[in-house]
């Protein structure tokens, strides 16, 4: 589904952020990307739907090359859902309108159909009664669930999560992870940048460990948590699992 091969990205000749990154996410697979901050994991996931440009290598989604200038990027992006660290709901629109905007303007759905779809998804994430509120009236966890619903409203073929729980208060993390776990169990193709190792243990098929812009380890979940091959991954794991 998502093929990443030999991707290099640099901001200047001396400042390389991604070095020869190669991996893939198969249909229905859940891949967790972890690593210390500054390791390039957020940058990599943003390269997948071309929110960040890269200089070398190829990324393709469902057979369509992201870095081909002829690719209709808005159309490709509309098929891949993305959830951001800071939710990025549109603050000037009501919750339901947040869910309807792209359905109507990008997919061309009629307003009442978009509303029906939006309400279904709000019900699914348990926020139906908040449809007429504005984003700022909701808690962080609720906003992130709306953001997931907004991405799902586009009927995506895959979902990208960029540290979806990093900006949340601890007591709100589980309500967001619950939604993500359900989604994974339903067979959604997911690429998730996160430090939530509990989530990785529960639903991930594979875990990718990144450090200094390189993919250091790309292993099946049990192998990764059982015995990571690289020292750096071992150190990282011992640090975040010891608490």
């Amino acid at each position: 589904m998502i093929e990443i091969s030999h991707v290099d990205k640099w901001y200047s000749p001396t400042f390389q952020v991604l070095t020869d990154c190669t991996t893939s996410v198969a249909k229905g697979e859940v891949v967790v990307v972890c690593g210390p901050s500054g390791s390039g994991k957020s940058t990599l996931i943003k390269c997948v739907n071309a929110l960040e440009p890269f200089q070398k290598g190829d990324i393709s989604i469902d057979g369509i090359k992201v870095n081909d200038p002829k690719t209709d990027l808005p159309k490709l992006r509309s098929r891949v859902g993305m959830v951001f660290q800071h939710f990025e709901l549109f603050p000037h629109l009501k919750i339901i309108d947040n869910l309807c905007l792209a359905q109507e303007k990008v997919l061309g759905r009629a307003h009442d159909k978009a509303v029906t779809k939006g309400m279904q998804l709000l019900e699914r994430v348990g926020l139906k009664e908040h449809a007429q509120k504005f984003p700022a009236q909701l808690s962080g966890g609720q906003q992130q669930r709306v953001a997931i619903a907004r991405a799902l409203a586009m009927d995506p073929i895959a979902m990208l999560f960029d540290e979806p729980t990093s900006a949340l208060d601890p007591e709100m993390i589980s309500e967001v992870l619950d939604v993500m776990v359900d989604l994974a169990r339903e067979g959604m193709t997911m690429m998730v940048v996160t430090h939530e190792m509990g989530f990785a243990r529960k639903v991930a098929n594979r875990v990718i460990f990144m450090d200094r812009g390189e993919i250091v380890e790309d292993a099946a979940k049990d192998d990764f948590f059982g015995k990571p091959r690289s020292d750096r991954a071992q150190k990282f794991l011992s640090k975040i699992l010891s608490h």
């Binding site: 808005p74 159309k75 992006r77 509309s78 098929r79 951001f84 549109f90 905007l101 792209a102 990008v106």
Partner: peptide, 9 residues
């Protein structure tokens, strides 16, 4: 970025 990710031009 969020708007682009949803497919808006």
């Amino acid at each position: 970025a969020a708007a682009s990710a949803l497919g808006l031009t």
